[in-house]
């Protein structure tokens, strides 16, 4: 929907414009808090109206999206959580192919919204977004 109000109106009201954000997650689930912080950050950014383009998984981070995760009922399901973020908010959940191959992660074992892709994609993410925020150990 096109807004008819002149853009200067928004400037005077100092509305923060949408920031396009890429996230790089370098650590696996559960061992470190990195995955949790990355998720909470992504959630808060989306809630504030920003665009979270993608979460790119690198190093052991690629194990965030294995679909056979089955944590105890009272614990968070990290893979499921990333899947929902992809489903509800169109956030790309991307695992690096080279890092995935090393760790036995393939299309067969990842969540529905997960995608295995190359480091070139990360480069594109770094180029096209306003921010790249890294989480890890």
């Amino acid at each position: 929907m096109r807004l008819s109000t002149p853009s200067c109106f928004y400037i005077t009201r100092t509305i923060v414009s949408t920031v396009n954000i890429g996230i790089l997650l370098k650590e696996g689930p559960y061992n470190h808090q990195a995955s949790d912080t990355a998720f909470k950050f992504a959630e808060a950014a989306i809630k504030k109206g920003h665009k979270v383009d993608a979460v790119f998984l690198y190093n052991d981070g690629v194990t965030n999206v294995t679909k056979h995760m089955d944590p105890p009922q009272d614990d968070r399901d990290i893979a499921k959580r990333w899947n929902e973020l992809g489903e509800k908010h169109g956030v790309g959940v991307l695992a690096c192919i080279a890092a995935s191959k090393r760790r036995g992660i393939s299309d067969d074992v990842i969540i529905e919204k997960g995608e295995i892709t190359g480091l070139g994609t990360l480069t594109d993410i770094a180029i096209r977004n306003d921010r790249l925020v890294t989480f890890g150990d």
């Binding site: 923060v16 920031v19 954000i21 370098k26 909470k40 950050f41 959630e43 808060a44 950014a45 809630k47 504030k48 920003h50 921010r131 790249l132 925020v133 890294t134 989480f135 890890g136 150990d137």
Partner: peptide
Amino acid sequence: VDYEGFVELVEEHQVNSWL
């Protein structure tokens, strides 16, 4: 700051994570 405050800092600045 809460996570929202973290996001606000990121609105203003590029990020250097010292992992």
